[in-house]
Simulated assay, not measured.
Amino acid sequence: MQIDPRLYQDFHPAPDNIFLLIEIADTTLETDRKRKAPAYAKAGITDYWILDVNTRQVYVFREPGEANYRQETVFNEDDVLSMLAFPEIEVQISQLFP
């Protein structure tokens, strides 16, 4: 898949254009989980990850609903994770953290 970098010069991407949304949380984990996750779910973002740099965990939110995500899973450093849009690409959680 080829993505034209000029595609979003005049407008923001719509949920159908977003394959994965990632937040990096140092001090914002609760805000990301309690405020942003519901907003992203309402917008229809299908795959939302929060990388918690303090615990070296990844919070994965999927199955957006009207009020929030129906699925929240926490992955640890030893786990492997794949994006919904590209399930053949595996990400070792430990490689996401320095």
Rank of each mutant, 00 (worst) to 15 (best):
R33V: 05
D78Q: 07
I89T: 14
T28P: 01
I45G: 06
Y69I: 09
N68I: 02
G44Y: 05
E88T: 07
E88S: 04
L20S: 02
K34D: 15
K34E: 14
Y8A: 02
D52H: 01
A41F: 00
D10H: 13
A43M: 09
F97I: 03
P15E: 14
I22N: 02
A37D: 12
E77N: 09
Y48Q: 12
I24H: 02
Y40F: 12
R33T: 04
I89L: 11
K36D: 01
L81D: 11
A67Y: 11
T27W: 05
P13V: 07
R33M: 06
I50N: 11
L84K: 11
Y48C: 02
I22T: 12
R6I: 00
I3G: 05
F61K: 03
R35M: 06
T28L: 00
F11C: 08
Q2Y: 13
S94T: 15
V58I: 15
V60K: 13
E63W: 02
D16F: 03
D26L: 03
P5D: 02
V80Q: 11
P87K: 01
Q57P: 01
D16M: 00
T31N: 12
G44P: 01
Y48H: 13
Q2L: 12
N76D: 15
W49T: 10
A43V: 10
F11I: 08
T27A: 13
I45S: 12
E23C: 04
S82I: 03
E88L: 08
K42G: 00
N76T: 10
E30H: 06
D47R: 11
P38Y: 02
Y69F: 13
E88H: 12
W49E: 10
E90L: 03
R62A: 03
T46C: 07
I24S: 02
